[in-house]
Nucleic acid binder design. Structure first.
Lengths: 200, 200
DNA sequence: TGTACATCAGTGAACGCGCGTTCACTGATGTAC
DNA sequence: TGTACATCAGTGAACGCGCGTTCACTGATGTAC
């Protein structure tokens, strides 16, 4: 039964703790990050952290959820933008979605490492899987509206894999500087279209 | 300056330490695994571990390298099998490569988690990137032989992304039971072909 | 084939340190009258 | 507008535990003659 931040100062502390946690994931990794380290960097004492988070994993979970929520906002906006334009628009503008999602990841220093940590920890992995499934559901919804004749499960599977690859590309961006970001978007978009068009 | 195992017993101990480390990565994750825990599970005392490994990361690095070496063996065999058959064979049999690589991952209990840990730790990530680049180089070599007219860098970038997605699919296999393995292979193969054929 | 010695492969026990977490408390902010 | 009180947001200091790692040593295996 943890408190949620009610006052402005508290809200700032809460967000700062998450920001610091993300930065530390990038610096020392999930295997070396610690609550004491997060607190020290954030300029608060440990009990301040435990006021808002039940334990260490709750911090990382909240960090991951905050990041994925921001990415989902991008997704919702993208879907809303192309929903009325037929399935061709949804397929043609995949690159936009990749680019905008990548912008969210790039904006936060430790975002890519947060996503990686979310994959690597057995304790956190379900959070990521759940989010990817949610994203897939929303995409299925958007596509199915224009393609009532397609088997829903088939569409789900194709989009689920597309989501996985989309995030894989996102996370690879900063890691492989031998491929320009725009090339990654273009190639990934091309691949995903290849998997979606036969269904469409 | 660490010893390498010379006698049979030592070799067995060395391999057992890596096996246990992989299993523990799956059970407790990279953020909770410890040398003491590995040793206890392997039935040896800590100095036995430090006889062969300089520190904790050396264990995980060796584990990752052993796994990726096994996957690379599969790759070499696959390339050798299709090298003489023209580029169509290389493109058509991508699913075989995915299937055989996945078999290696499935054979070892913690293999998928080893790959995830290798991505999530800033200390270990370079090992994985290097291996993926190596795999890409070998593939470029194989493809380029049949396609001398293609820009080598373009080919490299396409294959690099294909490698990333191949491993992403591999790691997703056990995590997303809503997609059958064969469907993952088929869809992934289809996507990768989509990115390779325009170049070919 | 047997023995002496060198090398290899471990054990037993502990070290200092930082971990995750908690207790009892103080200071800051909001609210009622 | 000022004061009394409730609630919120932190601090200071420490806890026990397991971490990564090491020292000095013993037991097992290989080798030379």
């Amino acid at each position: 039964v943890k408190a949620s931040p009610r006052q402005e100062r508290a809200q700032a502390t809460y967000e700062r703790l998450l920001d610091v946690a993300g930065a530390l994931l990038a610096e020392v990794g999930i295997e070396r990050i610690s609550t004491n380290l997060i607190c020290a960097r954030a300029g608060v004492t440990p009990p301040a952290l435990y006021r808002y988070f039940g334990d260490k994993y709750a911090v990382l979970a909240a960090l991951g959820q905050r990041l994925m929520a921001r990415q989902n906002d991008v997704l919702e906006a993208w879907i809303a933008r192309h929903r009325g334009c037929g399935v061709a628009a949804l397929v043609d503008h995949i690159e936009d979605l990749l680019r905008e999602t990548a912008a969210v990841t790039r904006a936060e220093p430790g975002a890519a490492w947060t996503l990686r940590a979310l994959t690597a920890s057995p304790q956190l992995a379900p959070i990521r899987v759940e989010s990817h499934r949610y994203v897939t559901d929303r995409l299925v919804e958007a596509y199915q509206a224009h393609l009532p004749e397609i088997d829903r499960e088939t569409l789900w599977q194709r989009l689920r894999l597309a989501v996985e690859f989309g995030f894989a590309a996102d996370v690879m961006l900063q890691e492989e500087e031998r491929i320009p970001a725009e090339t990654v978007f273009a190639l990934t978009g091309q691949m995903l279209r290849g998997a979606l068009l036969p269904a469409a």
